[in-house]
Structure formats: structure tokens, C-alpha cells
């Protein structure tokens, strides 16, 4: 599809969405350049899907604007939708349709010229590996195949921008790997926005990461820069009580946060029942280990483990988004 070669494919300025009294998205501005794979990160409920909906023109912003290839989405909704391929979360497709019929429908509604439709469909079938399931009803498909059909319908009109909302959620590890490979291949020639809350996914696929928390943009950088960002080394420690139930999480966090040289304290996995794990981010150049040891002892707890690790993207993500959603996280890269 013909578009000016220069300028960002997607640009949002002060994008805001209010639902009743709550601010779901609050003044989010970012750009996506041609050929980029942008990771769109945030805890569940941070406003990722709402932002993407506004970008695709399915939801009207309360304030701010979205431009797709320089065109204002609210002024020219149909024109901008033509340039976007969108796969909503969980791939909501027409369950009662057969895969081939569904692709035909998508091609017709996405304005693939009648003459080129057969070629476009067969290109998508080979690209997304759908040959075996063409005659099946979509409701019979495994989740992995379902996502592939979703990807195929989103790309069938060769869009300028592909927007994928949590394309790997609910898949098993093999399927995740498949979809991730597919997305990486697509990213070689396409501009992609990939929304997710799975960090290894963006580290493995994305050129740049935007993180939002509580409806606000909190970071916009490369994965490597974000991982290294603003924090010194990370100290991992595991404690347990002398006897009885595990120590209180909040109390321990407060004690550790008070140690000089500590930038942030994040809950992490413990080592079995009764123990508590923590990842402590040190301030640049500081080594808080002696202080941490003293604090644990002063609290009357047993220190099971205390060692340095290198900072990961996850540390940055959690530091930036914690408070937005405490229950999120738990995985270790």
C-alpha cells in the first residue's frame, strides 16, 4: 500500500482515555518507525489494550491523537484501518467458519483486489502454515493454529503496520516458539507492535520497548538499554524465620529499603515453604550487601542466600511498574 516513505508509521500524542471516573490511558506519546518491532509492555490492566484499540480506531480517545502514516485516525478512520492489520487478544475469530472461508472474508473486507485474492490467500497459507487446516472449522483449531489464522487475516492486505495484542497468551511453549519465530520473520519486512507482559518475548523479538504502567508511559528504549537502566547490581537474597510462619513481606521490604545504597526492593521467588525471596536493586556504584546482612540479622531472621546478579530487563520492568500491579511477575529470566 502506498505511503510516504518517511515519518513514523504510528504516532500517538498525549493519548488519553477515560472510562467514567477512571483514567485508563493517561497522556501516552510514542512513535513507531518503519521496519521496527516495538514491544508494548505493561502489567495486566495497565492500559495496553486500550491504547492499541485507540491506535486501530476501534476506540475513540478522550484526548490526544493517533496518526497512522501521517493520517489522523479519528479524521480518516477507514483509511487508517486499511493500513493496519490488527489481531486482538485471544484471536476472536468467527468460530463457525472454515479457515479458508474466513480468509476469503478477511481478504474481501480488507479490500484485497478480487484478482489478487487467491494469491494473497495462498501466500498467507504457506507463510502461516495453514495448509493442513484450511477445511476445518475455526472452533476446532488448537490455540496455536488459531493465532496463526489470526495473523494471516491481519496480514492478508499487506498492511503498513501490524498490531498484535498478546499473540502468545495461552499457548504452550512449543506454540509460543513457533509464533515468536513467525513474528520475527515478519519483522524483517514489516512494522510490528507486539503487546505482551512476557518479558523474554520482547527481549527475543523487539528492537525497542515501550512500557506503560497505570495508563502512563514509563519507558521508551531498547531492550539492552532498559535492562541496564539506572540501576547498579542486583542482590538476590532469601530469608526465613527462625521458626513458625514466614516473615511479613511488607515489613521485610520496609527494613531492606531503609538500608543505605538500596534503590528498590522487589519480591521474588523464595526457596520452598516458609522462606521469602527478594531482589534488591542497588544504587549505582553502591554495594549494600553488608547493610542487608545486618538488617536481616537485626530482624531476627535466618539468611539462606545472598549473592549478586546482573540486572535484567525484568528488574527494570518491575521497578517501573510495581505499585501498578503487585501480583504481576514471578518469572525469572
Amino acid at each position: 500500500m502506498a505511503t510516504p516513505a518517511s515519518g513514523p508509521v504510528l504516532e500517538t500524542r498525549g493519548l488519553t482515555k477515560r472510562f467514567g471516573g477512571t483514567l485508563a490511558v493517561n497522556g501516552v506519546s510514542f512513535q513507531v518507525q518503519r521496519g521496527e518491532i516495538l514491544g508494548f509492555l505493561g502489567p495486566n490492566g495497565a492500559g495496553k489494550t486500550t491504547t492499541l484499540r485507540m491506535a486501530t480506531g476501534t476506540l475513540r480517545p478522550s484526548a490526544g491523537e493517533v496518526r497512522v502514516a501521517g493520517l489522523d485516525v479519528s479524521a480518516a478512520p477507514l483509511e487508517t484501518r486499511r493500513r493496519i492489520g490488527y489481531l486482538p487478544e485471544n484471536a476472536p475469530l468467527y468460530d463457525d467458519m472454515q479457515v479458508l472461508d474466513f480468509l476469503r472474508l478477511a481478504a474481501a473486507l480488507r479490500e484485497v483486489p478480487a484478482r489478487g485474492r487467491r494469491a494473497a490467500i495462498s501466500a498467507m497459507v504457506s507463510r502461516c502454515g495453514l495448509a493442513e487446516v484450511l477445511g476445518k472449522d475455526i472452533r476446532q483449531l488448537s490455540k496455536g493454529y488459531r493465532q496463526r489464522v489470526g495473523l494471516a487475516q491481519a496480514m492478508i492486505h499487506d498492511p503498513d503496520l501490524l498490531i498484535l495484542d498478546e499473540p502468545t497468551s495461552g499457548l504452550d511453549p512449543n506454540q509460543i516458539a513457533e509464533i515468536r519465530t513467525l513474528i520475527r520473520e515478519l519483522g524483517r519486512e514489516k512494522t510490528v507492535i507486539l503487546s505482551t507482559h512476557i518479558l523474554p518475548e520482547v527481549q527475543a523479538t523487539c528492537d525497542r520497548i515501550v512500557i506503560i504502567a497505570d495508563g502512563r508511559l514509563v519507558a521508551d528504549d531498547t531492550p539492552a538499554a532498559l535492562a541496564a537502566r539506572g540501576s547498579g547490581p542486583v542482590v538476590r537474597l532469601v530469608v526465613r524465620a527462625q521458626a513458625g510462619p514466614p516473615p511479613g513481606l511488607d515489613e521485610l521490604r520496609a527494613r531492606l529499603s531503609a538500608v543505605p545504597g538500596v534503590a528498590a526492593v522487589l519480591p521474588a521467588d523464595g526457596e520452598g515453604e516458609g522462606s521469602l525471596g527478594m531482589r534488591v536493586q542497588a544504587a549505582q556504584g553502591a554495594d549494600p550487601r553488608p547493610g542487608l546482612f545486618a538488617a536481616v540479622v537485626a530482624a531476627g531472621l535466618v539468611l539462606l542466600d545472598l549473592h549478586r546478579e546482573s540486572a535484567t530487563l525484568e528488574d527494570t520492568f518491575r521497578r517501573l511498574t510495581l505499585g501498578a500491579d503487585e501480583s504481576e511477575g514471578g518469572r525469572h529470566a
Binding site: 484499540r53 477507514l78 476472536p92 479490500e111
Partner: peptide, 14 residues
Amino acid sequence: KSGSLELLCSLPVS
């Protein structure tokens, strides 16, 4: 209910 309305609304159809 199924969510496909969102997909439909993102297509270039009025």
C-alpha cells in the same frame, strides 16, 4: 460476547 466485534470494528468497514 466472543470479542470478534472488535476485530470487525478494526476492519475498513463503516
